[in-house]
Design a protein around this nucleic acid. Structure first.
Lengths: 343, 343
DNA sequence: TTGTACGCGTTATCAG
DNA sequence: CTGATAACGCGTACAA
């Protein structure tokens, strides 16, 4: 290895011209045998296909794209693959698209989506024909850009009525209201929320707002704790300790991720805080482990896989059948388990 | 929307020709301003770059690839993104590559890697310049194919000395031996292993073999339980029940995934089996949650992120500097916690 | 049903 | 340092 190992060169060493010569037909007939089979006499086509296979012919996708202006590539921009909640969606998205020969470019951007212009253009310049984005598009320039070039773009994990782009997601604001209402109905008068990084993160912002609005409307004590660094179990544990020290009257904690809730349960155990007797804990995402925690975690189920599949279908329908992209408001569901109970 | 919304057409509406005209230079100079800046007089270059930016010029990647025979795309084939252990690696891999303007195609193949020829050719035909694959390449035809076309291919998550392809991974066989030896040294005489799907999965096969060989050499009782369906917590729980019923003398269980081990702990709790007093449990992967389980899980740490980063570096070095791909045998480490102890 | 010839937008070559 | 032009491999009018 080392010298002259160019993949394209090797892979595309035999072209339509070679096949045409070998089959004693024109290049047009070869091309048509692959792309418009019904236009070629069956015997001729079969012969060409066979010869092409024997010669190891592979269409050059760059040339194909250049000519046809289609790449069969979809771009996806997500915060990170390191959270199963995004990985699950992308997994479903990718699987569905690959059934139709589409391939997915994946780019991670961290939780701050306010600065993803570069990532978007990178994918677009590389030929992405449509985009999947997590959350709302916050950068006005990006919004203009996508609109100007009519890039088919789907936003997920959120739902905003005022958006210029279709959303296939769920209502973060309403979902959190469901959670807080439930906790309030249980009699909790002072509740804390542990949220993820807020900057450029419309999901977290909506949840915090919903929480604050509800609690304020009831004139109930409340506090918000931002998990700024690592979004993991250790953080949840740490933040619990801070909460306990500075707000000892908190009787329930809303975690905006099951991972954080996991940490809170772990921290509570260490501190000797009984759950749910002394403290109620509620998660978000309904990850697989939630029901196996001690105690089983009350949490909010979100339609991760469904978002991926529906988004893929929408993209396919748009690209293949010119169907306009529609929004879907998907349902979430509060799964009550044993980490919450009446005060 | 609906008609004539071709992304490429819109995005590449202004070409080098337009920029050249506007800047009053030749197209060659425009091209060079972007790709070989040192060959263009600074003032001229700056002017061209500015004009190009104002006109919204974007190079057509298909044309670029067609001419240069480079795509700056890397393909990755992994079992699933739905397991954080793979997602973590891919996340690191992708992040590193994107620093150099590379983009990653991700395709999932399930756990059976014996039939991925189609996936490989799909990625290659789409222009992937190099490949990242999880596990050993089992299909002889695929092996021949990759060798014939000299596709830069890195295999991960395993390490085989007899492989025709470089491995950036760890030794599954030896790692399991470490685990079994440790358990045996603790005095366990009958051990069970819960493994993942075996078909087309060299990692699981190596671990099972290692386990059987060691136990046989000690003439110790042992059994292997294949987790055929879902590779999740519920399965671990279920299989534990089967083990307890049919092999009541088992005093230790090796789980080939922390997720399975999680299920075993959950099942044990339900059955009233005390861990580690009545049963030792050991995991694999050292996922984040392992140390927070009850009891904290003894497990094997694997270098997921490191594999991703090193693989990315190797690919970059191969593509940019013609450096041959080298193998790296990375270390694993047994993390002893409280789910194991002397008999 | 098939063949000819052109153009897609870029980079590489070669001459200046 | 710059310009003119060929070539990359394919799809598709248009002609036959």
């Amino acid at each position: 290895m080392g010298q002259n190992n160019n993949v394209m060169e090797k892979l595309n060493s035999v072209s339509v011209i070679d096949v045409a010569k070998a089959a004693n037909v024109s290049i047009a007939t070869v091309s048509r045998s692959f792309n418009k089979p019904e236009m070629v006499k069956p015997e001729v086509r079969e012969k060409i296909l066979e010869i092409a296979a024997n010669m190891g012919y592979t269409a050059n996708s760059a040339a194909k794209s250049l000519r046809s202006k289609k790449t069969k590539v979809i771009g996806a921009i997500i915060p990170t693959l390191d959270h199963s909640i995004y990985a699950t969606m992308i997994n479903a998205f990718q699987k569905k698209l690959s059934e139709q020969g589409y391939v997915v470019y994946i780019l991670t951007c961290g939780f701050d989506a306010s600065d993803i212009f570069d990532k978007v253009t990178l994918l677009l310049e590389r030929g992405a024909e449509a985009l999947l984005i997590v959350g709302k598009i916050l950068d006005k320039n990006l919004e203009k850009y996508l609109l100007k070039f009519k890039i088919p773009t789907i936003c997920t994990y959120s739902y905003h009525h005022d958006s210029k782009f279709p959303f296939i997601g769920f209502d973060n604001y309403a979902s959190t209201t469901t959670i807080v209402e439930y906790l309030y109905s249980l009699g909790h008068k002072e509740i804390a929320m542990i949220c993820g990084p807020l900057k450029g993160n419309d999901r977290q912002i909506a949840r915090v707002e919903s929480f604050k609005n509800f609690m304020t409307s009831k004139q109930a004590e409340h506090s918000v704790w931002e998990c700024k660094n690592q979004y993991n179990i250790a953080s949840g544990k740490e933040i619990l300790k801070e909460i306990v020290i500075s707000n000892p009257n908190v009787s329930a904690i809303i975690c905006n991720s099951d991972v954080i809730a996991f940490g809170v349960l772990a921290g509570a155990k260490e501190l000797g805080i009984k759950i749910p007797e002394q403290l109620n804990v509620i998660g978000y995402d309904n990850l697989e482990f939630a029901e196996y925690l001690t105690p089983p975690l009350t949490t909010l189920n979100i339609p991760a896989e469904e978002m991926g599949i529906l988004s893929a279908k929408a993209v396919l329908d748009n690209l293949n059948n010119q169907q306009p992209l529609k929004s879907y408001l998907l349902k979430t569901e509060l799964i009550v388990r044993e980490s919450t109970n009446p005060d």
